[in-house]
Nucleic acid binder design. Structure first.
Lengths: 159, 159
DNA sequence: TTGATATATGTAACCATATAACATATCAAG
DNA sequence: CTTGATATGTTATATGGTTACATATATCAA
């Protein structure tokens, strides 16, 4: 398990790296990273935070890339279903994946003070779900872990 | 970690037990288990599944216990905030807690075929979040684990 | 037992999130 | 170049949740 998202970083290079990884992944898998899809991913990477579908839609609208909800939702569905972005259920919002291409079960750390979200990853097979699954015979296909609390910065400023 | 929810059980006694536990807990903590709150808890226990706020509201309406969304949401907020029920973010729905009174971090196993939900519990301190938290300094206050897949019965009938 | 404060309910109006349905356009392969 | 699959545009609507404000009920202290 490792985590990134609260540290400072070279943001413009992280946007480029994210786009590059997804472009490559799409090329390999024969997926179409169309202008709208690409722009939505870029917005998520630029924002580096969880963004609502309507917030994204507003930006698309201003840029003349479609003005109705399905435009945003379809692009987001594409990104989420191929693992290039994740939905934070707790916030009804979306965030770019920090490990595109890698098969992983994300775990999100959501700061309730500044709304920053860090993506860690958890192994669903062992530890937190393994035992319950073995006991019941439940077949896990997908798992979501969302923790709410205070990020290091916000925890520090109030301590 | 243990799990209940997919097994057959004596349902009327499980409803009674749930109500009794919450009644006692409210008495001890000076909380008011008003008629609406009590009825909503009863509905969740009877249904023994995740129910939407508007589904609950429809029933309350028929029974003359309030007809507007805030009535249902307020009762649900009360139950959730005191640990007597949980919200399943993934389904935008609510379910009675199977361990009322006990301090716990629930983990939900959601069957995508029959919509049954089982509540297991996970220890957030060790295992699935412990390492990420230690690495980042994030302070976890609350965590949600939701797994989607097939329950034993549904997995069996398709195998 | 009365008055003050906190807690709970009732209701109207509204905002936010998400999808259905259908028409049109573009792409990819034979 | 045409056929089938994939992607987009747009209208309308469904679903989930909150704000705001008026009224009622409980709690407790004087």
């Amino acid at each position: 398990m490792d985590a990134i998202g609260f540290e400072r970083h070279d943001h413009s290079s992280c946007i480029r790296a994210g786009l590059d990884a997804v472009e490559q992944s799409c090329a390999e898998r024969g997926l179409q990273l169309t202008p709208v899809r690409r722009r939505v991913l870029e917005l998520l990477l630029e924002g580096h935070r969880a963004m609502g579908a309507y917030e994204i839609l507003d930006i698309l609208r201003k840029e003349g890339m479609g003005s109705q909800p399905p435009v945003a939702y379809r692009a987001l569905d594409f990104l989420v279903s191929h693992g290039f972005a994740h939905k934070i259920e707790r916030l009804n919002a979306f965030i770019a994946c920090m490990h595109p291409g890698e098969d992983h079960t994300p775990a999100f750390l959501i700061c309730r003070a500044c709304d920053a979200v860090a993506e860690a990853h958890a192994d669903p097979a062992r530890g937190f779900l393994g035992q319950a699954v073995r006991e019941t015979g439940f077949v896990v296909e997908q798992a979501v872990v969302e923790a709410v609390g205070l990020c290091p910065r916000c925890a520090g400023t109030r301590a």
